[in-house]
Design a protein around this nucleic acid. Structure first.
Length: 560
RNA sequence: CGGGAAGUGGCUCAGCUUGGUAGAGCGCUUGGUUCGGGACUAAGAGGCCGCGGGUUCAAAUCCCGCCUUCCCGACCA
């Protein structure tokens, strides 16, 4: 392939639209072009990478017995209504109607559709288990698209769905996919770790996220270096230290004037009391409009995902009672649902808002002065908390979520009535699992993990082209002839390559080669007099002078 | 939606404070010289200064409204 005939345009400067490394490089190296916020066109080089990723994904999934299919992106509302998600999904779903006013959406995910498709073809236990997947564009009206293709309105996802006759089989299937995922990321040279996760809006029993270690992470997770426990913050647990004040004797509750002191920090300084003695109280409201008070210790934060799980419903911030903000507390409150973090019950002589402006209660004690209807773990795990499994320190980091595996059980199959005849002849509901991988996002993760100050440093198997052939002087007939010959030979050896035939000064060609990140550059220049070519390794910057005739052999050897 | 920044040839940016008919570098076209690290040279092409309104003899520049984009927070692969 000749550089001059391919559609490759690089940029000399960082684009002003981009901030993060991968976003900048993707645009500069001509992998993608922005069409609108969160909507990107994949240019030839970007598409190549995408194809390499998809190839790895397909091969690993086919290997474990999955069948590829392609579902529509345009989906009627009916199946969504049956599972209740037409209402649950909210503003994130792109909705539209046809000319007869029938409602549709652009698929943000495909549990409903795939279930409808498969439904009548699963008749007996003999048809199970079944694994089907697709690689397709998904559409989500994101609150805030971010980091180029990382969080986009349109993105490419691989979604796999598995159907099972019983729990045991579902478990086994889940593990199988889990291992396939590990292999996929490894093959793509993306460092990632599986962490326990929350199911969120998708529902179901349990799940894992595969998080890539990147600086532009949006997923916070904790990991224990000693036993390997890893979980994202929405699911993370920790062994928490017992409150230091547990040995005090209970004192009488009293009211204290705290004029203008709203935050825990302000009040604790004002009263000269440790933040851990406070009952931090946050106001939420559930979908029915019922007010919910979430109580955590003053030095803790509420984790909304955990709170939702315990409150058993979708919740949102309550914005009324602005003037009371900072002075709310569980003591003496009625007509509200109080959800307490387990830890708060043990605080003796606690301090909380007195539910009137400029006042707090002192010496508040559980059972005696306040009670919670619901309690459990709703606090957010912090860096250096203790591991729930082994008790050693946890460390908190950020990463990019690339894959997510869910056990859904009958969350979708029940409302959509997917049944099969079991061995004993009775009809049973099919159990389901679903497993996603953010294909397009993987390019960004790959770049975040493989770049340097000069540009991209692709792992060989992911590079858009493996080799670039650079004749230093485009006017030299000898170099031109040799370059073309070499390029053809590489092709016939199955090594993808580009011959940089452009009549430009050498510097430009070198810079472009480094920016785009061809793993190997074969340079034809001065050393030709001695019958030598130079091979420059992008990742290490090393150069090797090698007899012309050995170039292909050498490259083949290195690429293994 | 809240908070911050920005919109000027294809790209990166200057000009705006103090209004006076639009600039640079890169890229592009043509000729010449060059050819191991974003070359040199000469001559060109290319701009409703984000959109709408207002102030003014005169607006890229001042005022008002809107749109778009990026970053930080609430959502997620």
């Amino acid at each position: 392939m000749k550089f001059s005939t391919l559609y490759i345009k690089t940029l000399r400067d960082d684009p002003q639209e981009a901030e993060t490394v991968s976003h900048k490089l993707m645009i500069r190296a001509g992998l993608v072009k922005k069409i609108s916020t969160g909507i990107y066109a994949y240019l030839p080089l970007g598409l190549k990478v995408l194809q390499h990723i998809m190839k790895a994904v397909r091969e690993e999934l086919n290997m474990i017995g999955c069948s590829e299919l392609l579902l529509p992106a345009l989906i009627p509302s009916d199946p969504w209504k049956k599972t209740g998600r037409w209402d649950l999904y909210g503003k994130e779903m792109f909705r539209l109607s046809d000319r007869t006013d029938r409602l549709f959406c652009l698929g943000p995910t495909h549990e409903e559709v795939v279930t409808e498709v498969v439904k009548n073809d699963i008749r007996s236990y003999r048809d199970l288990p079944l694994y089907v997947y697709q690689i397709q564009a998904k559409y989500r009206d994101e609150l805030r698209p971010r980091f180029g293709i990382v969080r986009a309105k349109e993105f490419i996802m691989k979604d796999l769905y598995s159907f099972h006759a019983d729990n045991d089989c579902l478990e086994k299937g889940y593990k199988k996919v889990f291992h396939a995922y590990e292999k996929i990321f490894e093959r793509c040279s993306i460092k990632s770790i599986p962490v326990e996760a929350d199911n969120g809006a998708i529902g179901g029993a349990y799940s894992h996220e595969f998080v890539a270690q990147t600086p532009i992470g949006e997923t916070a997770y904790v990991i224990c270096s000693s036993c390997g426990y890893a979980a994202n913050l929405e699911a993370a647990r920790s062994k928490v230290a017992i409150c230091s004040s547990h040995e005090e004797s209970k004192k009488e509750m009293s009211e204290m004037a705290t004029p203008g002191k709203k935050t825990i920090e302000e009040v604790s300084t004002f009263l000269n009391q440790d933040p851990s003695k406070f009952l931090k109280t946050l106001c939420y409201r559930n979908q029915k409009g019922k007010k919910i008070l979430a109580i955590v210790r003053g030095d803790d934060e509420v984790n909304e995902a955990k709170l939702k799980k315990i409150a058993g419903a979708d919740i949102e911030w309550s914005h009324e009672d602005q003037e009371l903000m900072g002075f709310v507390g569980p003591a003496g409150m009625s007509g509200v649902l109080i959800v307490a973090d387990e830890r708060t019950k043990k605080i003796i002589n606690a301090i909380c808002g007195a539910n009137k402006v400029d006042a707090h209660f002192m010496n508040v004690n559980y059972e005696r002065d306040w009670k919670a209807q619901l309690s459990g773990d709703i606090r957010e795990v912090k860096d250096k908390d203790l591991c729930p499994e082994c008790g050693k320190e946890l460390s908190l980091s950020l990463g990019m979520e690339l894959g997510h595996t869910f056990v859904l059980n009958d969350r979708y199959t029940k409302p959509l009535e997917v049944k099969f005849a079991s061995v004993d002849g009775r009809m049973k509901t099919v159990l389901m699992g679903c497993y996603g991988i953010g294909i397009s996002r993987m390019i960004a993760a790959l770049i975040e993990q493989h770049h340097d100050e000069k540009g991209l440093t692709w792992p060989v198997q992911m590079a858009p082209y493996k080799v670039i052939v650079i004749p230093v002087n485009a006017e030299s007939e000898e170099q031109t002839i040799l370059a073309e010959k070499l390029s053809n030979e590489l092709n016939s050896n199955g090594i993808s390559n580009i011959w940089d035939d452009r009549n430009l000064s050498p510097g430009v060609k070198f810079k472009d080669a480094e920016l785009i990140g061809f793993p190997y550059a074969v340079i034809l220049g001065k050393c030709l007099e001695e019958g030598l070519a130079e091979i420059k390794v992008r990742k290490t910057g090393e150069t090797f002078k090698i007899p012309l005739n050995d170039v292909i052999e050498k490259l083949k050897q290195w690429m293994e």
